[in-house]
Design a protein around this nucleic acid. Structure first.
Lengths: 190, 190
DNA sequence: TTGACAACCGACCGTTCGGTCGTATTTTAC
DNA sequence: GTAAAATACGACCGAACGGTCGGTTGTCAA
């Protein structure tokens, strides 16, 4: 009857996503995976330790087995943000953002994990974009893309609307391509 | 020693903003306003009833005493989104979004209040924009503007970065102006 | 078959949660 | 001046919280 660690982590992710850090209880998690609360403490020292595990799993699923650099930058960029957008649309909420809002100085480990989570997202996107534009431009576009996706998720969460997410994806891809064109033009003129 | 209702509501807003619905307790609120918990229940029937009060206050402060329609649409649009952006940057979080993520079917009154809150934001922005463009375009731009602001707030919350918010404001204003120009051009050509 | 080890559970701890109620105190109205 | 209404409080409730601990069960290698 052994319960997989990944089962616990991905179930914890669902709970954090829908109820937030404070709203999700260890008892909820235990019930959801078919264990008793005390058994959870064999695998995780405390509730806070679930947060890095949850975010690491999500990062792995998003950027893990991606064939990095083997394709055109624009295809890879479009692929990864469409993957993120689809996940956000299907789940209706972003675990990372819910945990970002739900953690504070009282949960420093969770807070650090959230920072690392978003930093990793930005770094990944930025590294794809910087194949076609200067690093500072890439970083800003990566940031704005993530912001747009997070904001569009709010409209999925509140109204169930998916249009905003579609526009966010389209506009982000356009913005990246425009920046790439502007970069190549300025290279020619200089 | 009477404590103003608005004091309670705006203090509740701070708590909801920083700790979320589940994370903010009635005891926290009582301590913060200098009352005992039982005294709060004289003014509010339960915790959930604080949510509409908090969001109504915020709406009032954002759109309340604005001289509607007396100025150019673009000035008014820029003004109101700069007010929102400044508030979000200063506070580091959006109460509305934190409550949107923190409420569920178990708190229907709060959930409805959140929907009304964001709908009111969208309606207000949309009505300003529709002075210069078709209603459907205005609605989409209003939505995307709010999404951008919410997303940029995440980067303030997580990294303390304010640049993303500045870009969000600038890009939203540009997008609105471009749509207005496109509208007037298509009117001429038809 | 047995010993060892990992997985799991029930009972329990102190604390905090949202919420209620009877009562004391202050303000207001007549 | 006095009655009524508003305001605040202390004590309390059952439930849920995160977390601990001693003991039982299941698995597997020797």
């Amino acid at each position: 009857m052994k319960v997989m660690r990944e089962t616990i982590v991905s179930t914890a992710r669902e709970l954090f996503r829908s109820k937030g850090y404070a709203g999700a209880s260890m008892n909820d998690l235990a019930d959801a995976v078919g264990l008793k609360k005390s058994s959870l403490y064999v695998r995780f020292p405390n509730k806070e330790a679930l947060v890095p595990a949850v975010l690491d799993l999500t990062l792995q699923e998003t950027f893990g087995d991606r064939d990095r650099g083997s394709r055109q930058w624009d295809v890879e960029f479009a692929d990864v943000i469409e993957l993120i957008a689809t996940t956000l649309t299907d789940r209706g909420r972003c675990v990372g953002l819910h945990l970002a809002y739900g953690t504070s100085d009282e949960t420093p480990i969770a807070k650090d994990a959230v920072r690392a989570f978003f930093q990793a997202h930005r770094d990944h996107l930025s590294s794809i974009l910087s194949r076609a534009m200067p690093a500072d431009v890439a970083r800003n576009i990566a940031t704005d893309t993530l912001a747009r996706l997070e904001g569009a998720t709010a409209f999925v969460a509140i109204f169930g609307e998916k249009d905003a997410m579609k526009r966010a994806v389209r506009l982000s891809i356009e913005e990246a391509k425009n920046a790439a064109v502007a970069t190549s033009l300025s290279r020619v003129s200089s």
